[in-house]
Each structure stands twice: as C-alpha cells, then as structure tokens.
Design a protein around this nucleic acid. Sequence first.
DNA 1: ATGAAAGCGCTAACAG
DNA 2: CTGTTAGCGCTTTCAT
Lengths: 349, 349
Amino acid sequence: MGARAVNIAEVASAAGVGVGTVSRVLNGSGQVRESTRRRVLAVMERLDYRPSRLASGLALGTTRTVAVLVPFLTRPSVVDRLAGVLSVLDEQGFDGLVYNVETPDDRDRQLSALADRHRADGMVTVSIPLRREQVAALEAQGMPLVMVDADCPGVSRVVVDNVAGGRMATEYLIGLGHTRIAFVGDQPNKAMGFVSTSRRLSGYREALRRHGIARDRSLERRGPHGADWATTVLEELLVRPDAPTAVFAASDTQAMGVLRAAQRCGKHVPGDLSIMGFDDIEAAALLGLSTVRQPLRRSGEVGARRLCSALRGEPITPVREPLPLELIARQSCGPPLVRERPPPVGVAV
Amino acid sequence: MGARAVNIAEVASAAGVGVGTVSRVLNGSGQVRESTRRRVLAVMERLDYRPSRLASGLALGTTRTVAVLVPFLTRPSVVDRLAGVLSVLDEQGFDGLVYNVETPDDRDRQLSALADRHRADGMVTVSIPLRREQVAALEAQGMPLVMVDADCPGVSRVVVDNVAGGRMATEYLIGLGHTRIAFVGDQPNKAMGFVSTSRRLSGYREALRRHGIARDRSLERRGPHGADWATTVLEELLVRPDAPTAVFAASDTQAMGVLRAAQRCGKHVPGDLSIMGFDDIEAAALLGLSTVRQPLRRSGEVGARRLCSALRGEPITPVREPLPLELIARQSCGPPLVRERPPPVGVAV
DNA sequence: ATGAAAGCGCTAACAG
DNA sequence: CTGTTAGCGCTTTCAT
C-alpha cells in the first residue's frame, strides 16, 4: 500500500514556501504572487495533495454540513421534500447528513447524537415535530434549526394550513353535490406527534358543519398509513346500504387504496364514488386522482434556504413561512350519480 | 447568547484532572478510578460539555461518515435502496452523507469534492456506474468503495442478473401464450452509463429467440423514464391492427404508464393486454402488477454492510455479490383472449 | 491510575 | 507578498 497522505506542511516545504502561503492558494485568498501560486499548485498536483476537511473544519470551527432528519424516508411525500432540501444544500455548498427515523426512539437517539459539537452546523427536520425540551436543547447548543412541515411556535419553519386543506377538499366534494363523504387518514401517532391528519380532519368537519351536513362518525376512519388499510376500510364502507358517495383521504397513498377498493367492489369512479387525495405525489397524476396539492419539493427547498441564511448569520424572517395549497381537479371526482342512470363511459383511473 | 462552548481542557481543570483522564472517561477506556470517573462525569454534566467530532476525528484520522451517491433520489427503487444503506450505516455507527446526482456533471462534481481527505471514510454508490478513471482515483485516494446495482469489474458490488430478469419476464409471457410482446424501457443513457434496461432488453430478445418468436423491432421502444412516455407509446401501439397482446416494461413506473394506456384505450388487463413490470416497488402490489422483483432495500443493506466490513479492515469476499430475482405473478398477466369472447369481469387493476 | 506533552492538519493573526 | 506561530479540541504514548 502506499504513499502516506500528504499534508500541507509537506507541500509547503516541497514548494519552498511556508504553510501559510499554501493555505492561501488553497483558499484563493488573493495575496499570492502568481508565480508562487503556480508553483504551489504544481507541487500540490505532483504530490496529489488533498486537504483535510477535518483539519480545516476544526480550525474554522465549522463543518459545512447540515443534518437532515426525515421520518419514513421512502414515503413519496417525504423523499420529495428531502430532494428539495438536498438540492439547496448542495447549491449552497453544504453537505447533507441524512437520518431516517421511524420511531420516537430513533428520533431521540439521533437528536442526542447530534448534540456533539462540530457534527453539523445546523439541522432541518422534515415532518417531525420536536418536543419543547428538544427544541430548547438544540437552541442551548447553538444549533440552528428549521422545521419543514411542522408548526412549532418559535422555531423557523415552513408549513401549510392543513385545516384549510381539509376544508378545501371537502367543500369541493360538497360543491359537487355529495353529502355522504367519508374521511380516511392515518391514525393518531402520539409518540411521533404527527398532527397533519388531525388538522385535515378538522377541516373536513368544519366544511360539513358549515354546509349543514350532519357528521357521521362511522364515516370517519383512521388507521395505519399505507394503501392496504385504506382499501380494507373502504371495502367495508362500500357494501353498506348507506355507503358514502365520496371519500376524502388525508394522503394520496391512502387515496390509492380507496381507489383500489372501489375497483374491487365494482364501483365506478367518479360515478359511484368520488375520491380526493392530499399531497399530489407523482402517482396521483398518473391515476387521475384529484387532490390537494402541497409544494412538497419546494417546502424542502425553502426550509434549506432558510437554514443556510441562518448559518450565514442573516436574520431569518418571517419565522413561520406558510406555503400555499392548491386543489387539483382530475378525474376521480364528480357529482354523485343517480343509481338508475347508466354507468359513465370513460372511467379515467 | 452566551456560554462559549466548553472544551476538554476546561472540563479537566474544573475536575482537577488532566485532559488525558477526561478523554479516557469519555471513551470508556477502562483505566480510570471509579471515583475520578464520576467526578469527571459530573463536571461534564454541569458544564454541559459536548465533545467535538471534528477534533476527535482529526486526532483519530477518521470521520465515521460514509458518502452515499444516488441518482434520481425520488425514484421509488432508488429511495428503497437508500433506505437500506442508511439503516445499516446507522446500526453500525456511521453517519450517511447523501448526494443526489442527476447528471454526469453532478456526479463528477461530487466525486471530486469527495476527493478531500477526511470527508468520508468510504463511499457507496447506488445504481451509478463509475468510469474506470474514477474508480482508479478513488482507489488511489484509499477511499473504500462499494457499488450497489452496478456491475463494475474489480470493485466490491452487489448486483442482480438483469439479462436473466428480462428473460424471466418474457418467458413468463410466452408461457402464457403470447407471441406479440412489446418491450418498453428507458432510453440509453450514455452519459450516466446506465445499462440495466439494455440488459433486460437482451434478456427479452433472448427469450423470444429461444422460443422461435420473430423479433419485431417496432415493438421494442425506449424513451424517457417515467410513466407518461410509456403511456404515449402504448396508446400508439394499441391502436395498430397488429397490436401487442402483452408488454414487458423494464420498470414498474413505466408499467404503470402502460397500464394507464390500456385503460384509456379501453383495453382490459390482462384479457386484452398483459403487463409485466420490473422492480416490485410498492405501487406494483397496489395495482396488481405482475413484476420481476429485485430486493431493493436489501441491496442497499448488503452494500452498506460490505462497506462497513471494509472499513473495519475485514477483507470482503466475494467481490461481486449477486442477489436473486423473483417473478411475482399478480393480476396484470394472463393468457391472450380470443377477440370474440366476452370481456372478463373483474379487471383487477 | 493519571499528568504532561506531542501530534492530527489547517487557518489566521502577526511580523516583516 | 510571505514565513512563523499560535491555536482549533481531542487522542495517545510516555513517564510517574
């Protein structure tokens, strides 16, 4: 094996200059005679010199690295956000350490590991609420933090109005003429503290109330994330005599499960059943799913951008940055059909 | 603002011991009297001491960090692999720096950035072939590398047999009675050097040849990744008088596009058109898509495990680790139906 | 068991 | 412009 790594001192002596000069050419800090610069560069080349990030980081007191905490990395909405975060970090010259956490334990473990100094200059959490003490601890450590998709008072964050989103989806359905509208969403996750689903549910209820539609608790279902459970629950609902004519799923993934249930039950979409999703992940367009779009990738970009500003010492305002929601009407929603009418032709699913 | 960060020296003096001792309790390196240990621990606690990763890393000459290069992060197959990589890294005590590269330029830029010493202890690439010189450069730098889903002679890698996979899919279709089988896959990407699609295409051709089915080049289509293009191309194929009765898509994503084309053209699946995918991403099960499953997440785990072994100095053998492919039969494939027969009832899509 | 001191490799302030 | 030097914070001999 060979050639022990070359350090700046060796380059300096080989080039017949001081380490300071080498450092200067390394960082392009002007004040170096062109001829000297070239000589040093040549030596670095010849010796295959590669600077140590650890050493420069230590000297500078910075890592140029940002920690990114994401839950359930493989979920489309999460990975879209992450992609946004990473792209901005990259463009701003930061490396991204990614931690995928699926349990409160994971989260706490990573958080305390991140308590080491000089591990990351800052941190962005995606869709992960933190407890007060955790936020406080981070603050105490002087670790800049920005949260994406979590509304934590006092911390820099980018959010959407989930209540409004739920209302928007539901009112769209109501406007189409539906009155029996089911809700399907993730079950409450106290441990991780997710609240988006609950918020969307509130919006749903609010819409019903506003339009004088009595709330039917048997139509409000929450269960494990993923399409499978949604399929099961809908299959159950669809055979009831008072089956819903529409369903609002709190995520596109679950909406996909609902879609499958409709198909299995021989229900036409949207004739027999209208389906609204949430997020607008890529598959939604593919399946013709109407949905409430939130700017997933963009939320990550905005969050990362804020963190980078903070790291540059710029004050970041406003602290809370809301991103817009948008209703995307595709083919999965329509007016409820009268039973006697013939089924619609092109079921665009 | 306040309390400037505490370092090991301050802890030492506050505890009335030498820095060496503090370091020892920090790393649990035995030889410290229990009473001393406790006293030091108490001081660390009181002063809210947090060790510097940069400093210990520099002293130790290691970063406990691994760089992970992935292309098109948001693709389901890629993120599944990444999740596998990260989970193993985490369990083995490494942090993962994730770089999402979408162009050869991205790739080269990240690669040369990674040339710095002490940036990462090792690297795993996911589905990214590297050029000979790049591999050589990494080797010269003493940067341990393992590649997941890329078959680069001489480097530690985990792969699947894509030719066999293509054959497997095609023979399954042939076995069902199909003879007009289309192929849909990514277009050749010379720049990034992806070859999986070409391999699968080879397998497809091989299967046809073996079974004496004449190859029809007009049924072999390659275009941009993503479902949209696949939909377009299939809509075109399906209106031809000699439309295919089956199609093998080189990825589930494209298979989804094919599925949509069938629906738009009013073709029943699998009666009028059988569809085979590749990968077995989550949506495949949801859509009842038959496919060739490859262990996505597992490939990442295995790759990361190998890298960690290498970092531990253990010799890693074999250098090339093949993972198995498996045909998953769901509802999207069946024997071609005679045109006169009535359409099947339950289109399980 | 533990203190002292020599690095790890780089940056920046300070003289020239 | 450029050499010298003092850190950055930790690990690890080497004595004691």
